[in-house]
Amino acid sequence: MIVVKDLVRQFKSGDRTIKPVNGVSFELGKGSLASIVGKSGSGKSTLLSLLGALDKPTSGDVVVDGVSLAGLPDGKLTEYRRRDIGFVFQQFNLIPNLSALDNVMLPLEFAGVRKSARLQRAKELLEQVQLDPEKHARRTNRLSGGEQQRVAIARALANEPKLILADEPTGNLDEQTGEHIIELLSSLSRDDNTTILVVTHDRSLAQKTERCFRLQQGRLTEEVRSGSRR
């Protein structure tokens, strides 16, 4: 489903050139649940943004269902993000003056879903991520970090994307809620055939994924598991 070919992203930092992603290649099948682990600053988030078409690689390509992202114009990339990608940001990136419901409804609005349908869908998603119904109408800047995290996950799931890219999805959650989110992502992968790639420091989450990659100095290696998770 997703093929990454020799992906390179480099930045200029003063006189130095840094390569947080340096020749990364891998493939993920449809419905797989994978994780990327690595130290802070190892380029995990940069790789995720390249896969999510938030950034363009210096070289290399990402091919999704046979379509090369490198060749797509900006308009098509926006459409790709809207239709095929669900992105959970490490910093949540919610719109602070909008309610939890409004935030979840945004991607649905951009996809042209009718108001009543998107309201219904947003409520279901917020319930799915276990956000108290009384907080659905609350502005997200008045929610706790964990609650914002759940709203961000609900928003990522809104348009039923083919690929969910999650940057530390359980980083701000308590153990119980974290478990629930992991179970939610697993069920999406298992039942809805959604491909999920998470970047995490959470070993328990990484261990529950089908495949686990380690990013070190811009290079990706896959950790070999003795048994299957499922």
Partner: peptide, 16 residues
């Protein structure tokens, strides 16, 4: 700017 970036990231077209 950040808000615009978020809107773009979740698929908002430029015209919106």
């Amino acid at each position: 700017r950040r808000e615009i970036g978020v809107l773009k990231a979740i698929g908002a077209p430029n015209r919106t």
